[in-house]
Write a protein that binds this DNA or RNA. Structure first.
Length: 561
DNA sequence: AGTCCCTGCGCG
DNA sequence: AAAGCGCGCAGGGACT
């Protein structure tokens, strides 16, 4: 097997619509530019790429096109884009242009790549200019030097294992982006009408309250003249009924001891639902596939998490009416697979807090335990609401939430009014009952603040930006080892599942941090659900050595929570 | 008209 | 003295 350096030029960024116009291949000292694609040539390239080790920059892009257009499926590769971000400790994940081939070339070869926009987007025809040919050839010519130096870096930094996870995940990401999501347009139209009605009601409600509170600026029909969307106008209206507030921000609105507060919040909620979600999804239906085809960025955050955009499928509201819109095509089922409390299990694993370990090893409920400890009552008497509250406690306090913020959170999320003293008492009780966790968190926070970076259990390094306050590093130090390991587990699972689910023609339609969603034919639903559970759990169990990793799998007609 | 920043809010 | 972490996107407002 030899090393092949590869890049492609396309007519655009859409793997369904646009076409590959050029494949650049560097093998040994030869650079080949392939621009005609007859059957024999495709067979030859397929054979070459599928049976060798491919090095390329952001291979997701090329692999997506190669699969879609030519059914070429390389499976052994090194991605210099991911390597670069990994080596940077995730810093280059979010710095625009920091990990482009141009930037990486400059860093390792000290030369400027001619990446001017005009040239870059000019590969539409088959007759290439000299400039285009030079440009295209240079893209692969630089790769060996980058590859060699990155290999050394990955080794020196001890990043080989996590790099393997990343490489194993690339084809799963291609799979994810090519799959897309089905959207139930009929259902959507119904929800759209209902939501518009709710907005009208909420608007009328706000205006009626304004009027009844003595607001004077009325139109001919006797209703207040105000656009609730406009902070300026809304502020004026609030002044008009006697509130001496200086903004219409959420905190101000929430603190209004008046029915108008709730009314405005309801209006905003419904408005958000309509404009950010319901009206957006149809705009993203792809003309060719008839599905939503979001972008997924495999190294979207400094912690190694995916991000999703256009549309962001990681922020779909829990509302049943919205999730139900992602409905299986006829003859198919949707499989939703969730890691159960993965972050808290990771906290248990890395901290070795005995009470956490005991809970998970005996299949008990940590939120309930926390509630009972804090409220000082038997677990059996903990109500549903109290358990919900304890959930916020477990996450919040572990990651550095203070008493004051907890008080705010309790009010905003659960409409629970507690005093700051009570919040402080909760916090004290929490750490008193989980002393090993407390000790771990303190060490993690201090070490991270000192080093300004962490290394998690799979070896991933997360470096923090410079110039922050000490407490900020401490909070990142508490959270990052957990969040990043969770990301690694999910990526590990995705790689495994890409391989295991091949025979079943399942589609991976979404990836939401600790949740994977699939669409599969009815006949294979049970079998694939079983494999999904097994593989996801095995992927987690590689890191959770002392406690079980549990995945909850449901088969249904649509995406569900 | 396009860009940038801010706030607010959806998700993990 | 006090401070949970990680995202993307809509809308407003300021600016060019």
């Amino acid at each position: 097997m030899s090393i092949i350096y590869m890049d492609t030029e396309t007519t655009g960024l859409d793997a369904f619509k646009d076409k590959i116009t050029l494949i650049q291949i560097k093998e040994g000292n030869k650079i080949r530019l392939v621009k005609t694609f007859n059957e024999a040539k495709i067979r030859e390239i397929k054979d070459l790429l599928e049976n060798n080790f491919i090095v390329g920059h952001n291979l997701k892009f090329d692999l997506k096109f190669l699969k879609q257009q030519f059914n070429i499926n390389p499976d052994n590769f090194f991605d210099t884009w991911i390597a670069e971000i990994l080596i940077s400790g995730g810093m280059k994940a979010r710095q625009r242009g920091a990990a482009t081939l141009e930037a990486v070339t400059k860093e390792y070869l000290k030369i400027e790549l001619n990446k001017d926009e005009e040239l870059r987007t000019s590969f539409k025809g088959t007759d290439l200019t000299k400039d285009q040919i030079n440009y295209a050839a240079l893209d692969v010519a630089v790769l060996p030097h980058i590859y060699k130096q990155q290999q050394v870096q990955l080794k020196e930094l001890g990043l080989e294992k996590v790099f393997e996870i990343e490489m194993g995940c690339i084809l799963a990401t291609v799979w994810l982006e090519l799959s897309g999501l089905p959207l139930d347009m009929e259902g959507l139209k119904k929800v759209q009408l209902e939501t518009k009605k709710r907005i009208e009601e909420a608007e009328l409600n706000v205006k009626t309250i304004l009027k009844e509170s003595g607001y004077k600026n009325l139109d001919l029909s006797g209703l207040p003249v105000v656009s609730i969307d406009s902070p300026k106008q809304l502020l004026e209206a609030l002044h008009g009924i006697g509130f001496k507030v200086d903004s219409t921000g959420d905190e101000v609105i929430s603190s209004l001891d008046h029915p108008i507060g709730k009314a405005i919040k309801e209006y905003r909620k419904q408005q958000k639902l309509l404009t950010s979600f319901i009206l957006k999804y149809p705009e993203h239906l792809h003309k060719i596939t008839g599905r939503i085809q979001p972008d997924f960025n495999q190294y979207g955050t400094n912690t190694g998490r995916f991000t999703s955009s256009k549309p962001n499928m990681q922020q779909v509201p829990h509302d049943k009416s919205i999730r139900a819109l992602f409905k299986a095509n006829p003859g198919n089922k949707i499989i939703t697979a969730d890691y159960s409390q993965i972050e808290l299990r990771i906290i248990a694993e890395v901290s070795q807090e005995p009470r956490f370990l005991e809970i998970y090893n005996n299949n008990k409920d940590l939120h309930r335990l926390t509630a009972s400890l804090i409220l000082n009552k038997p677990e059996a008497e903990v109500t549903k609401e109290e358990r919900q509250q304890a959930k916020a406690i477990n996450f919040g306090f572990a990651y550095g939430l203070g008493a004051k913020s907890f008080k705010e959170k309790a009010k905003n999320d659960y409409e629970i009014d507690i005093s700051i003293e009570q919040a402080q008492e909760f916090r004290n009780t929490f750490f008193k009952n989980y002393p090993i966790l407390a000790a771990y968190l303190q060490t993690a926070a201090r070490t991270a603040a000192g080093r300004k970076q962490i290394r998690n259990k799979s070896g991933r390094i997360v470096r923090f930006e410079q110039g922050l306050e000490g407490w900020q590093y401490e909070n990142m130090g508490r959270n990052t080892p957990i969040q990043s390991l969770s990301a690694d587990i999910t990526k590990n699972a995705m790689g495994r599942l890409y391989n295991k689910l091949k025979p079943y023609k399942a589609k991976l339609i979404n990836a939401v941090h600790d949740e994977l969603v699939f669409e599969v034919s009815q006949e294979h639903a049970e079998t694939t659900a079983k494999i999904i559970k097994e593989e996801m759990e095995a992927a987690g169990q590689e890191y959770l050595k002392n406690i079980p990793c549990i995945v909850e799998v449901t088969i249904g007609e649509s995406w569900q929570k």
